[in-house]
Structures are given as C-alpha cells and as structure tokens.
Design a binder for these strands. Structure first.
Length: 282
DNA sequence: CGCATTTGACCATA
DNA sequence: TATGGTCAAATGCG
C-alpha cells in the first residue's frame, strides 16, 4: 500500500536503471491512455446503445476493461514498489510511524481522538489518472466534498468521493481538474481525472465493478429521490465573482445532468446527449 | 425540511 | 513553509 516515489530508490538497486524505471512509467502511461480512450469510447457507445438490451452487458464489459487496466497499473506499481524499496523502514521510518499512528487516529472510535481528523496528503500509490473531455461519465456516482485552487493551475480542482462512501464504506475518491490549455473554442475542454482507491461498494445501477466485499446490502431508501446527483459542477473557467461562478456551474449542471442520468440512474431512459457528447469529443 | 454543494479553515506532507 | 487533501458550517435548491 504505502509506496514511495522514485526518490527513495536505493542507490545500488538493480532496478535503479533509468531505463527500467522509465519503462515502467511509460507502460503505466500507456495503460492510462488506454483507459482514457475506453472512457471516451464508452461515452459514445452507451448512449447509442441505450435502447438495446445489450446495453447493460456492454457497460459491464467497459467496466471490466477499465478494471483490468486499473489492476495492471496497480500491479506495476506494486512491482515497482518492491523493486525500489527493499527496506522501507530504513528509508522512511519516522514518517511511517507518524503516518501509521494517524491512520489509527481516524479509525479508532473517536473516544479521545482529536476533534480534528488528520488531512493527509495523498501518496501516489493506488491512483489512476486519465484525460477525458467527459470527466463524470464513468458510470459511478460521486459526491463532491471539496474544491481547491491549485498552485499554477488555471482551474480549480474538485474533490469527489464515492456517493456510497458512507453507506458502504467505499474508499474510492477522485479529483477532476480542467486542463489549462483551453485555446480554441472548437477543441474540447479536457479534464484530468485522477482516481484514488478502489470501489468497494455496489452501486445500484447494475454496473458494478467493485471488489464486492459481500458487505453491500441495505441501500438506504432515504436517497430514493435523485439525491445522489452526479458530480457535475465543472468549475468552468474563471471564478471571478461568486455569483458568476454559480451561474456557470448551474448551466453546466443542466447539461451534465441530462448526460449522466441515463447511465447512472436509468440506462434505458431516452436521452438527448448525443450532441453534447459529440461536441465534447470532436 | 432534508439533502448536496460550496467554501474557508485546518492539518499532514513534501 | 508552501501546498494539497479533507472537514464541517453555511448556503441554496428541490
């Protein structure tokens, strides 16, 4: 789980070969690129298939493909990690201790725990990043829990966690950030989406990919309405004034909502997202 | 009124 | 110390 950056590579390790490391990196990069392409392809194909009874199957297959590549990346990372870090404890001892103790801090029933939980910076393990014009069309339901302006980035980064994080203790999170370029009006706005952790939940749209831990159960009927709205607040551009921002986000909300509902809520519902999708992708 | 989102503050990490 | 990730009160919407 814990993984370390290449800076922790031991000086004399055989894996220290620059070519070895860069091959690893480029392999992961290629897989991530494949994921991005599959995601985009899914955004095109699923809407077209919405009336087809195989839609669900196709969605499942897309998800399986994405899961495969996620697993491949994880394996590569683990391999890289074990190569690069024969003795973790020697390298990162103090930080490790602190990290572990703080990990206990949150889990332990808050008896005397600090009222403020730890906010640790995420490590680079167990993450998958991809670039896509459709950052939210991933078949999952997310809930936004934060937004932050990132240093040297034009656009804020939005933080999402699985909509079932509470009910099912799903640890999956993702961040979405619009890429800087935004040059012309004709080329699609691209987003960098970074997924952290694996879904352990079962979402209720039938397209589950999570490593089901058999602890699913009891979907609280409290969200029978459209509450777990998908994460559509793309912070479009300039956050000049608050009012402006909200207007923009609301309009984005409309667009994206009509776009996600078919997959998230009802795969077979009529939809009108083709134009938007194609606009975004072409 | 209940819910999701927004947003500033807090805190861990590099 | 700067930066990034998370929390939780405030806000607004349905």
């Amino acid at each position: 789980m814990k993984q370390h950056n290449s800076r922790y590579l031991p000086q004399s390790s055989p894996s220290d070969h620059p070519s070895f490391v860069s091959e690893h990196r480029s392999a992961m990069k290629e897989i991530a690129r494949g994921q991005s392409l599959v995601t985009q392809l899914r955004a095109i194909v699923l809407p077209v298939l919405q009336a087809d009874q195989r839609c669900e199957l196709v969605a499942q297959m897309f998800q399986d493909i994405l899961d495969c590549s996620s697993k491949a990346i994880t394996d590569l990372q683990l391999q890289h990690q074990s190569d690069a870090r024969p003795d973790d404890a020697l390298v990162d001892d103090k930080k490790r201790v602190r990290r572990i103790s703080s990990d206990h801090g949150i889990k332990e029933e808050g008896a005397n725990a600090n009222p403020h939980h730890q906010h640790k910076r995420r490590r680079s393990d167990d993450l998958v990043s991809l670039e896509t014009p459709v950052p939210h069309y991933d078949g999952r339901q997310w809930r936004k829990y934060g937004q932050k302006h990132i240093n040297k980035a034009k656009h804020p980064r939005s933080y999402y966690r699985c909509a079932y994080s509470k009910e099912q203790d799903c640890k999956a999170t993702k961040t979405v950030q619009q890429q800087d370029e935004s040059i012309g009006t004709d080329n699609p706005v691209m987003y960098t989406v970074v997924y952290h952790g694996q879904h352990t939940c079962k979402d209720n749209n039938g397209v589950d990919s999570g490593t089901d831990e058999s602890e699913t159960s009891t979907l609280s009927s409290s969200d029978s309405r459209s509450s777990i709205s998908t994460t559509c607040t793309d912070p479009c551009d300039h956050q000049t004034s608050l009012g402006d921002n909200k207007l923009i986000e609301k309009s984005a909300d409309l667009v994206t909502k009509s776009m996600y509902e078919p997959l998230d809520m009802n795969p077979f519902a009529p939809l009108d997202l083709d134009s938007w999708e194609l606009d975004a992708l072409l």
